[in-house]
Each structure stands twice: as C-alpha cells, then as structure tokens.
Amino acid sequence: MATSLTARTLFISDLHLGTRDCQAALLSRLLRRVRPERLYLVGDVIDLIAMHRRASLPAEQQRLVGRLLRLAKGGCEIIYIPGNHDAALRQLCGIRMHRVRIERRAIHETADGRRLLVSHGDEFDTHVRLAPWLMALGDGMHQFVLSLNRWCNKARSLLGLPYWSLAAAVKGRIGAAQRYVEQFEQAAIHQAAREGLDGYVGGHIHKAGFRAQDGVLYCNDGDWVEHCTALIERPDGSLALIDWEGQVIEAEPSMPRACPEGALAGA
C-alpha cells in the first residue's frame, strides 16, 4: 500500500480539464497520497478555450473534480488562480465559496517565513502581448506534439510501461523553447524582487523547475498534460517537485545567505 505524503501546501497547475491530454488519472493517484492543508490551483485548471470548441469532461476527469471538492469539504483550503485558458473565471476573483476562493494572484507565506508571489504566469508571456500570431503558431505545433504524446503513451500502457512525456522530450531539444523558458523565469524573478518578496511560484509554460538568483527563488510546478508534476511545501517550509507517485524529483536549491554587515572586519 502506498504511504501518504505529508504536505503543508500543494501547488498544481495546467490540468487542462476538458481536453484529451489531461492526465486526470495520474493526478488522482497523487491526491490519494498527499493530504495538503492548503492547495493552490495555479491556472489553466479548466481549459475553457478547448471546451468552447468541444465541450467534454470524461469520467476520469469528473472523478478528479469530485476528489478536489472532497478535499475542500475535508478541511483543505483551496485557492484557485485562473490562467489564460480559464481567464473567464477572473471575473469571479474575490469570491469565496466554503473553503474555495478565487484570486487573481496570491502571496503565500511558507512555514519558514518566506513570502512567495503565486500567479499563473501568462502576464510574463511577451509573445501573448507582442505577437499573438506567433503564439497561435506555437500552440498549433504544441497540440500536434501532444497528440503524438497520447499515442506514444497508449502504446507504452499496452506494453505495461509507465507514463513518459514525449512532448517534454521534444521541447527540451528545441533551442527557441529553452530561450523562452529562460526569459520567462527572468521576468518572474524580477517581478518578485520588485515586490520585495522571497520568490515566485507559477505554471503556464509547462516546464517544472527551480531557479535561484539574487536571493529570489523561482519555482514552476509544471503541468498535468506533459510532465505531471506538482510543487510541495513540507511542514518545515522546504519545497520540492514531486511526480504523480509522490516521489521527489527535485529539491529546491540552497540559497546563498547574505553576509552580515561587518562580518569580514575581523577576517
């Protein structure tokens, strides 16, 4: 029997419910093992853009929604921060229903006292603001790669092999995608620094990871169509990326501590 994973906070994003690419079964598996006190849904939870074209919520995705509602009923506080694919829900920001509230962004304080800006991240996407046609072209290519990802994992399932992200492997070899990720991370770090915060947590780019720069920690929780990862805060405030099995795949990097004024005087 799988052991439960202690979590003070869980951050998940980019579920894209309503699409064929949503890995609802894998996320449900994780939520059976993790019982967070607080859950952040960091955008693109429901893909309203896709559902406008073809409204569909398969049984596995319906069960996932039910599991999330049971978490709230059981005492877990849920903060829903809409993204660009569920942007229509931003009109509801400020509303609280039982233990679920909808916010445009949030400031999360960890158990060890750090203050982190939490947002979906599309506000940092210069392609959305400056070149919509380029984003549309990229989205078309992304959907094609995701379709290959579905067929690849159907074959792996028949062979008894675990989930593996072909889409993530392809994007990891494209230089332009890597440069975009770096620019996105830089923009998020700068925003957190401007607000005097210790770090940033977001999603949007479907690329989980950490980055530490100038005393600011960048965290991306990944997604549930390609990487199937989440960001967890442990009871002591430390952060880590976990997969659908609850296994730690990356711990937050150690942050250099500022040298106290005058500490070198007697060196």
Rank of each mutant, 00 (worst) to 15 (best):
S28M: 10
G74R: 05
R54S: 15
E195C: 08
D122T: 05
E233Q: 15
I242W: 15
D112T: 02
A212I: 07
R105F: 13
I46Q: 07
A258M: 02
L137Q: 07
Q247G: 08
L30K: 06
Q247R: 12
R33K: 15
Q186K: 14
D47V: 11
A240L: 00
T9Q: 11
I189H: 10
H227D: 14
Y180S: 10
S4V: 13
I46N: 03
S238K: 12
S147N: 15
G172R: 09
A208I: 01
S119T: 12
R211E: 11
G215E: 12
R33N: 04
A55M: 13
L57H: 03
M141W: 11
Q23D: 08
H190I: 05
A258R: 15
R115F: 08
G18L: 04
L48A: 15
A263H: 01
L166V: 06
R257I: 00
R234Q: 14
S119M: 12
R114I: 04
G113H: 12
A208E: 05
V170Q: 09
H142E: 13
L197F: 07
L197T: 04
T3H: 15
H85M: 06
W151Y: 05
G209V: 00
R67K: 14
A25V: 14
I205Y: 14
W133C: 00
L159I: 08
R99A: 07
A167C: 13
G266M: 06
L158E: 10
R101N: 02
I205W: 09
V225S: 05
A176G: 03
D21M: 08
D214H: 15
W244A: 15
A167E: 12
S157G: 00
D223N: 01
A2Y: 14
P162T: 04
